[in-house]
Design a protein around this nucleic acid. Structure first.
Lengths: 219, 219
DNA sequence: CATCAAATTTGACGATGTATCAGATTATAC
DNA sequence: GTATAATCTGATACATCGTCAAATTTGATG
Protein backbone atom coordinates (compact mmCIF):
# COMPACT_ATOMS: atom_id res chain seq x y z
CA UNK A 1 0.00 0.00 0.00
CA UNK A 2 2.97 2.35 -0.60
CA UNK A 3 3.31 5.33 -2.84
CA UNK A 4 4.87 3.17 -5.51
CA UNK A 5 3.93 -0.29 -6.62
CA UNK A 6 7.46 -1.67 -6.67
CA UNK A 7 7.65 -2.74 -3.01
CA UNK A 8 4.25 -3.97 -1.96
CA UNK A 9 3.45 -3.81 1.75
CA UNK A 10 6.03 -1.15 2.55
CA UNK A 11 5.32 2.57 2.50
CA UNK A 12 7.91 4.44 0.49
CA UNK A 13 9.06 7.94 -0.29
CA UNK A 14 9.21 9.28 -3.84
CA UNK A 15 12.82 8.09 -3.98
CA UNK A 16 11.74 4.49 -3.40
CA UNK A 17 13.37 4.35 0.01
CA UNK A 18 11.49 2.38 2.68
CA UNK A 19 10.33 4.65 5.49
CA UNK A 20 11.38 4.48 9.14
CA UNK A 21 9.20 5.42 12.11
CA UNK A 22 9.93 9.15 12.10
CA UNK A 23 9.22 9.45 8.40
CA UNK A 24 5.97 7.53 8.75
CA UNK A 25 4.85 9.98 11.38
CA UNK A 26 5.66 12.98 9.21
CA UNK A 27 3.91 11.38 6.28
CA UNK A 28 0.79 10.74 8.33
CA UNK A 29 0.87 14.33 9.59
CA UNK A 30 0.84 15.47 5.97
CA UNK A 31 -2.05 13.13 5.18
CA UNK A 32 -4.02 14.39 8.16
CA UNK A 33 -3.41 17.99 7.15
CA UNK A 34 -4.57 17.16 3.62
CA UNK A 35 -7.72 15.49 4.91
CA UNK A 36 -8.56 18.44 7.10
CA UNK A 37 -8.06 20.99 4.34
CA UNK A 38 -10.15 18.85 2.02
CA UNK A 39 -12.95 19.05 4.59
CA UNK A 40 -12.81 22.86 4.77
CA UNK A 41 -12.01 24.22 1.32
CA UNK A 42 -12.85 22.62 -2.02
CA UNK A 43 -10.32 20.35 -3.73
CA UNK A 44 -9.95 22.96 -6.37
CA UNK A 45 -8.20 25.42 -4.13
CA UNK A 46 -5.97 23.65 -1.71
CA UNK A 47 -2.23 24.02 -2.18
CA UNK A 48 0.84 22.10 -1.17
CA UNK A 49 2.05 25.17 0.70
CA UNK A 50 -1.04 25.16 2.87
CA UNK A 51 -0.81 21.46 3.57
CA UNK A 52 2.83 21.87 4.56
CA UNK A 53 2.01 24.84 6.79
CA UNK A 54 -0.74 22.94 8.59
CA UNK A 55 1.52 19.93 9.05
CA UNK A 56 4.22 22.27 10.35
CA UNK A 57 6.75 21.33 7.74
CA UNK A 58 7.90 22.54 4.33
CA UNK A 59 6.60 21.96 0.81
CA UNK A 60 9.81 20.14 0.01
CA UNK A 61 8.97 17.55 2.63
CA UNK A 62 5.57 17.05 1.08
CA UNK A 63 7.12 16.36 -2.29
CA UNK A 64 9.46 13.93 -0.61
CA UNK A 65 6.49 11.67 0.11
CA UNK A 66 3.94 12.45 -2.60
CA UNK A 67 4.11 13.29 -6.27
CA UNK A 68 1.28 15.81 -5.88
CA UNK A 69 -1.88 16.56 -3.91
CA UNK A 70 -3.78 14.02 -5.96
CA UNK A 71 -1.52 11.22 -4.78
CA UNK A 72 -1.97 12.17 -1.15
CA UNK A 73 -5.70 12.04 -1.75
CA UNK A 74 -5.35 8.62 -3.34
CA UNK A 75 -3.66 7.47 -0.17
CA UNK A 76 -6.46 8.87 1.98
CA UNK A 77 -8.97 7.06 -0.20
CA UNK A 78 -7.04 3.82 0.41
CA UNK A 79 -7.18 4.36 4.15
CA UNK A 80 -10.94 4.89 3.93
CA UNK A 81 -11.46 1.38 2.57
CA UNK A 82 -10.61 -0.13 5.91
CA UNK A 83 -14.06 0.64 7.29
CA UNK A 84 -16.03 -1.21 4.70
CA UNK A 85 -16.24 -4.46 6.69
CA UNK A 86 -18.92 -2.79 8.83
CA UNK A 87 -21.12 -2.65 5.75
CA UNK A 88 -20.35 -6.24 4.80
CA UNK A 89 -21.54 -7.59 8.12
CA UNK A 90 -24.91 -6.02 7.43
CA UNK A 91 -25.35 -7.65 4.03
CA UNK A 92 -24.76 -11.09 5.47
CA UNK A 93 -27.75 -10.61 7.73
CA UNK A 94 -31.07 -12.26 7.00
CA UNK A 95 -33.11 -11.14 3.99
CA UNK A 96 -36.21 -13.10 4.97
CA UNK A 97 -39.52 -11.43 5.77
CA UNK A 98 -39.58 -8.27 7.81
CA UNK A 99 -35.98 -8.84 8.88
CA UNK A 100 -34.93 -8.27 5.30
CA UNK A 101 -35.97 -4.66 5.55
CA UNK A 102 -33.93 -4.21 8.72
CA UNK A 103 -30.93 -5.66 6.93
CA UNK A 104 -31.45 -3.18 4.11
CA UNK A 105 -31.70 -0.38 6.66
CA UNK A 106 -28.50 -1.54 8.30
CA UNK A 107 -26.68 -1.32 4.98
CA UNK A 108 -28.02 2.15 4.29
CA UNK A 109 -27.02 3.33 7.77
CA UNK A 110 -23.53 1.89 7.51
CA UNK A 111 -23.02 3.48 4.11
CA UNK A 112 -24.26 6.84 5.28
CA UNK A 113 -21.89 6.62 8.23
CA UNK A 114 -18.98 5.83 5.91
CA UNK A 115 -19.78 8.77 3.69
CA UNK A 116 -20.33 11.25 6.48
CA UNK A 117 -16.89 10.39 7.82
CA UNK A 118 -14.97 10.57 4.56
CA UNK A 119 -17.19 12.88 2.52
CA UNK A 120 -14.54 15.08 0.89
CA UNK A 121 -12.08 12.31 0.07
CA UNK A 122 -14.72 10.00 -1.36
CA UNK A 123 -16.07 12.76 -3.58
CA UNK A 124 -12.66 13.28 -5.10
CA UNK A 125 -12.10 9.55 -5.41
CA UNK A 126 -15.30 9.24 -7.42
CA UNK A 127 -14.59 12.32 -9.50
CA UNK A 128 -11.17 11.03 -10.49
CA UNK A 129 -12.51 7.52 -11.09
CA UNK A 130 -15.35 8.81 -13.25
CA UNK A 131 -12.80 10.87 -15.12
CA UNK A 132 -10.99 7.70 -16.08
CA UNK A 133 -8.08 7.71 -13.63
CA UNK A 134 -7.09 4.07 -13.25
CA UNK A 135 -5.59 4.35 -9.78
CA UNK A 136 -8.73 5.88 -8.35
CA UNK A 137 -10.88 3.40 -10.24
CA UNK A 138 -9.00 0.59 -8.57
CA UNK A 139 -9.36 2.08 -5.09
CA UNK A 140 -13.05 2.59 -5.70
CA UNK A 141 -13.45 -0.94 -6.96
CA UNK A 142 -11.53 -2.36 -4.01
CA UNK A 143 -13.85 -0.53 -1.64
CA UNK A 144 -17.10 -1.42 -3.35
CA UNK A 145 -16.52 -4.78 -4.98
CA UNK A 146 -17.04 -6.90 -1.84
CA UNK A 147 -20.28 -5.10 -1.11
CA UNK A 148 -21.54 -5.27 -4.68
CA UNK A 149 -20.58 -8.89 -5.12
CA UNK A 150 -22.54 -9.95 -2.09
CA UNK A 151 -25.53 -7.91 -3.15
CA UNK A 152 -25.28 -9.47 -6.60
CA UNK A 153 -25.23 -12.92 -5.01
CA UNK A 154 -28.46 -12.20 -3.16
CA UNK A 155 -30.08 -10.94 -6.34
CA UNK A 156 -28.98 -14.05 -8.21
CA UNK A 157 -30.48 -16.26 -5.53
CA UNK A 158 -33.75 -14.36 -5.78
CA UNK A 159 -33.69 -14.80 -9.54
CA UNK A 160 -33.17 -18.54 -9.19
CA UNK A 161 -36.19 -18.64 -6.87
CA UNK A 162 -38.09 -16.69 -9.54
CA UNK A 163 -38.67 -13.74 -7.26
CA UNK A 164 -36.69 -11.32 -9.38
CA UNK A 165 -36.86 -10.76 -13.13
CA UNK A 166 -33.96 -11.98 -15.27
CA UNK A 167 -34.05 -8.64 -17.01
CA UNK A 168 -31.87 -7.34 -14.19
CA UNK A 169 -28.20 -8.16 -14.53
CA UNK A 170 -27.26 -9.01 -10.93
CA UNK A 171 -24.01 -7.13 -10.80
CA UNK A 172 -25.27 -4.18 -12.80
CA UNK A 173 -28.24 -3.94 -10.46
CA UNK A 174 -25.92 -4.11 -7.45
CA UNK A 175 -23.83 -1.32 -8.95
CA UNK A 176 -26.95 0.76 -9.49
CA UNK A 177 -27.97 0.24 -5.88
CA UNK A 178 -24.43 1.24 -4.94
CA UNK A 179 -24.87 4.59 -6.62
CA UNK A 180 -27.98 5.24 -4.54
CA UNK A 181 -26.11 4.42 -1.37
CA UNK A 182 -23.18 6.60 -2.34
CA UNK A 183 -25.46 9.55 -2.95
CA UNK A 184 -27.29 9.10 0.35
CA UNK A 185 -25.28 11.63 2.31
CA UNK A 186 -25.38 14.25 -0.43
CA UNK A 187 -29.14 13.82 -0.71
CA UNK A 188 -29.59 14.08 3.03
CA UNK A 189 -28.43 17.67 2.95
CA UNK A 190 -30.36 18.76 -0.11
CA UNK A 191 -33.64 16.98 0.54
CA UNK A 192 -33.96 18.42 4.03
CA UNK A 193 -35.33 21.56 2.35
CA UNK A 194 -38.23 19.53 1.04
CA UNK A 195 -39.15 18.36 4.49
CA UNK A 196 -37.63 14.94 3.97
CA UNK A 197 -35.97 13.73 7.14
CA UNK A 198 -32.87 11.63 7.41
CA UNK A 199 -35.03 8.70 8.45
CA UNK A 200 -37.36 9.12 5.47
CA UNK A 201 -34.34 8.94 3.28
CA UNK A 202 -32.88 5.86 4.92
CA UNK A 203 -36.24 4.10 4.83
CA UNK A 204 -36.71 4.98 1.18
CA UNK A 205 -33.27 3.76 0.17
CA UNK A 206 -33.67 0.65 2.27
CA UNK A 207 -37.05 0.09 0.63
CA UNK A 208 -35.59 0.26 -2.87
CA UNK A 209 -32.71 -1.95 -1.82
CA UNK A 210 -35.06 -4.52 -0.34
CA UNK A 211 -37.37 -4.45 -3.33
CA UNK A 212 -34.62 -4.94 -5.88
CA UNK A 213 -32.65 -7.53 -3.92
CA UNK A 214 -35.57 -9.72 -2.92
CA UNK A 215 -38.11 -8.93 -5.62
CA UNK A 216 -40.79 -8.76 -2.93
CA UNK A 217 -42.83 -5.65 -2.25
CA UNK A 218 -42.86 -4.04 1.17
CA UNK A 219 -46.08 -3.32 3.12
CA UNK B 1 -28.70 34.26 -16.60
CA UNK B 2 -25.65 36.53 -16.48
CA UNK B 3 -22.49 36.26 -14.47
CA UNK B 4 -24.04 38.34 -11.71
CA UNK B 5 -27.53 38.17 -10.34
CA UNK B 6 -28.14 41.91 -10.45
CA UNK B 7 -29.41 42.18 -14.03
CA UNK B 8 -31.37 39.04 -14.82
CA UNK B 9 -31.60 38.10 -18.49
CA UNK B 10 -28.55 40.03 -19.58
CA UNK B 11 -25.08 38.54 -19.72
CA UNK B 12 -22.57 40.76 -17.98
CA UNK B 13 -18.86 41.14 -17.42
CA UNK B 14 -17.31 41.18 -13.95
CA UNK B 15 -17.72 44.96 -13.95
CA UNK B 16 -21.48 44.64 -14.28
CA UNK B 17 -21.46 46.11 -17.77
CA UNK B 18 -23.95 44.60 -20.25
CA UNK B 19 -22.15 42.85 -23.10
CA UNK B 20 -22.30 43.75 -26.77
CA UNK B 21 -22.06 41.31 -29.66
CA UNK B 22 -18.27 41.19 -29.88
CA UNK B 23 -17.91 40.59 -26.18
CA UNK B 24 -20.50 37.83 -26.25
CA UNK B 25 -18.50 36.08 -28.93
CA UNK B 26 -15.27 36.31 -26.95
CA UNK B 27 -17.04 35.09 -23.85
CA UNK B 28 -18.45 32.09 -25.66
CA UNK B 29 -15.02 31.33 -27.13
CA UNK B 30 -13.68 31.23 -23.58
CA UNK B 31 -16.52 28.95 -22.49
CA UNK B 32 -15.90 26.60 -25.41
CA UNK B 33 -12.20 26.47 -24.62
CA UNK B 34 -13.00 25.70 -21.00
CA UNK B 35 -15.37 22.91 -21.98
CA UNK B 36 -12.81 21.36 -24.28
CA UNK B 37 -10.04 21.44 -21.69
CA UNK B 38 -12.41 19.97 -19.13
CA UNK B 39 -12.96 17.07 -21.52
CA UNK B 40 -9.23 16.40 -21.94
CA UNK B 41 -7.51 17.06 -18.61
CA UNK B 42 -9.06 16.77 -15.17
CA UNK B 43 -10.59 19.82 -13.47
CA UNK B 44 -7.77 19.68 -11.00
CA UNK B 45 -5.16 20.76 -13.48
CA UNK B 46 -6.55 23.23 -15.93
CA UNK B 47 -5.36 26.82 -15.70
CA UNK B 48 -6.70 30.16 -16.80
CA UNK B 49 -3.59 30.60 -18.93
CA UNK B 50 -4.41 27.48 -20.88
CA UNK B 51 -8.02 28.46 -21.39
CA UNK B 52 -6.92 31.87 -22.63
CA UNK B 53 -4.35 30.34 -24.97
CA UNK B 54 -6.89 27.96 -26.48
CA UNK B 55 -9.40 30.78 -26.91
CA UNK B 56 -6.65 32.86 -28.52
CA UNK B 57 -6.85 35.66 -26.03
CA UNK B 58 -5.20 36.71 -22.77
CA UNK B 59 -5.80 35.69 -19.15
CA UNK B 60 -6.84 39.26 -18.37
CA UNK B 61 -9.71 38.89 -20.80
CA UNK B 62 -10.83 35.75 -19.06
CA UNK B 63 -10.96 37.57 -15.75
CA UNK B 64 -12.96 40.30 -17.40
CA UNK B 65 -15.81 37.84 -17.89
CA UNK B 66 -15.42 35.32 -15.09
CA UNK B 67 -14.33 35.49 -11.48
CA UNK B 68 -12.51 32.17 -11.83
CA UNK B 69 -12.56 28.83 -13.62
CA UNK B 70 -15.31 27.62 -11.33
CA UNK B 71 -17.64 30.36 -12.50
CA UNK B 72 -17.03 29.54 -16.13
CA UNK B 73 -17.90 25.95 -15.31
CA UNK B 74 -21.07 27.09 -13.56
CA UNK B 75 -22.04 28.82 -16.76
CA UNK B 76 -21.40 25.66 -18.78
CA UNK B 77 -23.53 23.71 -16.33
CA UNK B 78 -26.33 26.22 -16.89
CA UNK B 79 -26.09 25.75 -20.64
CA UNK B 80 -26.33 21.99 -20.19
CA UNK B 81 -29.77 22.27 -18.59
CA UNK B 82 -31.32 23.19 -21.89
CA UNK B 83 -31.36 19.58 -23.06
CA UNK B 84 -33.38 18.19 -20.23
CA UNK B 85 -36.76 18.50 -21.98
CA UNK B 86 -35.81 15.43 -24.02
CA UNK B 87 -35.89 13.42 -20.81
CA UNK B 88 -39.17 14.94 -19.70
CA UNK B 89 -40.98 13.87 -22.84
CA UNK B 90 -40.05 10.30 -22.01
CA UNK B 91 -41.47 10.39 -18.49
CA UNK B 92 -44.83 11.57 -19.74
CA UNK B 93 -45.14 8.42 -21.80
CA UNK B 94 -47.34 5.54 -20.72
CA UNK B 95 -46.40 3.48 -17.68
CA UNK B 96 -49.01 0.79 -18.31
CA UNK B 97 -48.09 -2.82 -18.94
CA UNK B 98 -45.15 -3.63 -21.16
CA UNK B 99 -45.09 -0.06 -22.45
CA UNK B 100 -44.04 1.07 -19.00
CA UNK B 101 -40.73 -0.69 -19.40
CA UNK B 102 -40.14 1.03 -22.74
CA UNK B 103 -40.84 4.36 -21.08
CA UNK B 104 -38.31 3.52 -18.38
CA UNK B 105 -35.82 2.55 -21.08
CA UNK B 106 -36.43 5.82 -22.86
CA UNK B 107 -35.61 7.76 -19.72
CA UNK B 108 -32.42 5.80 -19.13
CA UNK B 109 -31.34 6.33 -22.74
CA UNK B 110 -32.04 10.05 -22.65
CA UNK B 111 -30.13 10.42 -19.40
CA UNK B 112 -27.18 8.46 -20.68
CA UNK B 113 -27.14 10.64 -23.78
CA UNK B 114 -27.17 13.77 -21.65
CA UNK B 115 -24.29 12.54 -19.54
CA UNK B 116 -22.17 11.34 -22.42
CA UNK B 117 -22.42 14.79 -23.95
CA UNK B 118 -21.63 16.83 -20.85
CA UNK B 119 -19.67 14.31 -18.81
CA UNK B 120 -16.88 16.55 -17.51
CA UNK B 121 -19.03 19.55 -16.71
CA UNK B 122 -21.72 17.54 -14.95
CA UNK B 123 -19.12 15.79 -12.81
CA UNK B 124 -17.82 19.11 -11.56
CA UNK B 125 -21.33 20.41 -11.07
CA UNK B 126 -22.13 17.49 -8.82
CA UNK B 127 -18.83 17.68 -6.99
CA UNK B 128 -19.34 21.33 -6.18
CA UNK B 129 -22.99 20.78 -5.28
CA UNK B 130 -22.15 17.86 -2.99
CA UNK B 131 -19.48 20.05 -1.43
CA UNK B 132 -22.16 22.51 -0.42
CA UNK B 133 -21.75 25.22 -3.07
CA UNK B 134 -25.14 26.90 -3.30
CA UNK B 135 -24.83 28.11 -6.87
CA UNK B 136 -24.06 24.63 -8.17
CA UNK B 137 -26.77 23.14 -6.00
CA UNK B 138 -29.27 25.45 -7.63
CA UNK B 139 -28.14 24.59 -11.15
CA UNK B 140 -28.30 20.94 -10.30
CA UNK B 141 -31.77 21.33 -8.82
CA UNK B 142 -32.99 23.32 -11.82
CA UNK B 143 -31.83 20.54 -14.11
CA UNK B 144 -33.22 17.64 -12.12
CA UNK B 145 -36.28 18.99 -10.33
CA UNK B 146 -38.68 18.71 -13.28
CA UNK B 147 -37.60 15.13 -13.89
CA UNK B 148 -37.75 14.14 -10.24
CA UNK B 149 -41.08 15.84 -9.65
CA UNK B 150 -42.72 13.94 -12.46
CA UNK B 151 -41.23 10.68 -11.31
CA UNK B 152 -42.46 11.45 -7.79
CA UNK B 153 -45.95 12.08 -9.17
CA UNK B 154 -46.01 8.68 -10.81
CA UNK B 155 -44.86 7.03 -7.60
CA UNK B 156 -47.55 8.85 -5.63
CA UNK B 157 -50.20 7.67 -8.07
CA UNK B 158 -48.99 4.10 -7.69
CA UNK B 159 -49.11 4.47 -3.93
CA UNK B 160 -52.69 5.71 -4.08
CA UNK B 161 -53.55 2.65 -6.15
CA UNK B 162 -51.82 0.55 -3.48
CA UNK B 163 -49.21 -0.76 -5.90
CA UNK B 164 -46.31 0.82 -4.07
CA UNK B 165 -45.51 0.79 -0.37
CA UNK B 166 -45.98 4.01 1.60
CA UNK B 167 -42.60 3.34 3.15
CA UNK B 168 -41.10 5.04 0.12
CA UNK B 169 -41.17 8.80 0.24
CA UNK B 170 -42.08 9.66 -3.35
CA UNK B 171 -39.62 12.47 -3.84
CA UNK B 172 -36.83 10.77 -1.94
CA UNK B 173 -37.35 7.68 -4.08
CA UNK B 174 -37.27 9.79 -7.21
CA UNK B 175 -34.03 11.37 -6.05
CA UNK B 176 -32.56 7.93 -5.41
CA UNK B 177 -33.54 6.84 -8.91
CA UNK B 178 -31.95 10.03 -10.17
CA UNK B 179 -28.64 9.04 -8.66
CA UNK B 180 -28.75 5.75 -10.51
CA UNK B 181 -29.42 7.53 -13.77
CA UNK B 182 -26.64 10.02 -13.15
CA UNK B 183 -24.16 7.24 -12.55
CA UNK B 184 -25.19 5.35 -15.68
CA UNK B 185 -22.48 6.68 -17.93
CA UNK B 186 -19.73 6.26 -15.37
CA UNK B 187 -20.83 2.67 -14.77
CA UNK B 188 -20.96 1.95 -18.47
CA UNK B 189 -17.22 2.38 -18.69
CA UNK B 190 -16.30 0.45 -15.59
CA UNK B 191 -18.73 -2.43 -15.87
CA UNK B 192 -17.67 -3.25 -19.41
CA UNK B 193 -14.73 -5.10 -17.83
CA UNK B 194 -17.18 -7.46 -16.16
CA UNK B 195 -18.76 -8.35 -19.47
CA UNK B 196 -21.76 -6.13 -18.85
CA UNK B 197 -22.86 -4.46 -22.07
CA UNK B 198 -24.32 -1.02 -22.42
CA UNK B 199 -27.69 -2.61 -23.14
CA UNK B 200 -27.52 -4.81 -20.04
CA UNK B 201 -26.95 -1.68 -18.04
CA UNK B 202 -29.78 0.27 -19.61
CA UNK B 203 -32.16 -2.67 -19.19
CA UNK B 204 -31.14 -3.08 -15.58
CA UNK B 205 -31.59 0.59 -14.75
CA UNK B 206 -34.86 0.68 -16.63
CA UNK B 207 -35.94 -2.42 -14.70
CA UNK B 208 -35.24 -0.81 -11.33
CA UNK B 209 -36.93 2.38 -12.47
CA UNK B 210 -40.01 0.50 -13.61
CA UNK B 211 -40.17 -1.59 -10.48
CA UNK B 212 -39.91 1.37 -8.10
CA UNK B 213 -42.21 3.68 -10.03
CA UNK B 214 -45.00 1.20 -10.70
CA UNK B 215 -44.53 -1.27 -7.88
CA UNK B 216 -45.08 -4.09 -10.35
CA UNK B 217 -42.48 -6.75 -11.09
CA UNK B 218 -41.18 -7.31 -14.58
CA UNK B 219 -41.30 -10.71 -16.27
C1' DC C 1 -15.50 60.28 -43.55
C1' DA C 2 -13.40 62.28 -39.44
C1' DT C 3 -14.13 62.40 -34.71
C1' DC C 4 -14.91 60.71 -30.32
C1' DA C 5 -16.90 58.17 -26.57
C1' DA C 6 -17.99 53.69 -25.32
C1' DA C 7 -16.75 48.93 -25.62
C1' DT C 8 -13.30 45.59 -25.62
C1' DT C 9 -8.77 43.79 -25.11
C1' DT C 10 -4.14 43.45 -23.35
C1' DG C 11 0.82 44.27 -21.41
C1' DA C 12 2.91 44.57 -17.37
C1' DC C 13 3.38 43.42 -12.65
C1' DG C 14 3.47 41.93 -7.56
C1' DA C 15 2.01 38.18 -5.02
C1' DT C 16 1.73 33.44 -4.50
C1' DG C 17 2.37 28.58 -5.64
C1' DT C 18 5.07 24.55 -7.83
C1' DA C 19 8.64 21.35 -7.92
C1' DT C 20 13.60 20.41 -7.34
C1' DC C 21 18.03 20.34 -5.49
C1' DA C 22 22.10 20.25 -2.61
C1' DG C 23 23.18 20.53 1.78
C1' DA C 24 21.85 20.91 6.87
C1' DT C 25 19.99 18.45 10.65
C1' DT C 26 18.76 14.53 13.39
C1' DA C 27 18.70 9.66 14.78
C1' DT C 28 21.09 5.20 15.24
C1' DA C 29 24.72 1.88 15.51
C1' DC C 30 29.12 0.78 16.87
C1' DG D 1 32.19 10.15 20.33
C1' DT D 2 32.21 9.26 15.72
C1' DA D 3 30.40 7.37 11.50
C1' DT D 4 26.63 6.41 8.68
C1' DA D 5 22.15 6.45 7.20
C1' DA D 6 17.68 8.69 7.54
C1' DT D 7 15.08 12.72 7.47
C1' DC D 8 14.20 17.42 6.68
C1' DT D 9 14.54 22.17 4.71
C1' DG D 10 16.41 26.79 2.62
C1' DA D 11 17.15 28.53 -1.56
C1' DT D 12 15.76 28.80 -6.07
C1' DA D 13 13.92 28.85 -11.04
C1' DC D 14 9.99 28.94 -13.02
C1' DA D 15 4.69 29.19 -13.81
C1' DT D 16 0.34 30.90 -12.67
C1' DC D 17 -2.89 34.15 -10.46
C1' DG D 18 -5.49 38.16 -10.47
C1' DT D 19 -5.44 43.35 -11.06
C1' DC D 20 -4.54 47.52 -13.00
C1' DA D 21 -4.10 51.36 -16.20
C1' DA D 22 -3.56 52.04 -20.72
C1' DA D 23 -3.97 50.59 -25.65
C1' DT D 24 -6.94 49.21 -29.28
C1' DT D 25 -11.19 48.54 -31.72
C1' DT D 26 -16.01 49.64 -32.79
C1' DG D 27 -19.71 52.22 -34.48
C1' DA D 28 -22.64 56.31 -33.72
C1' DT D 29 -22.86 61.10 -34.84
C1' DG D 30 -22.21 65.39 -37.00
Amino acid sequence: MGSQGSQPGRVMAQTGRVLGPRALKTRQRLLDATAQLLRDRSVLDISVVEIARKAETSPATFYHYFKDVEEATLQLARQAIEEMPAVLEQIDGSWDGARGFDTARGIAEAFLQHWETHHAVLLIRNLAADNGDRRFQKVRRDALAPVLERLADRILEAQEASHVSRTLHPFAAAAALGSILEKLSAHAGELAHRGISRDDLIDTCAGILFQVVTGRSLD
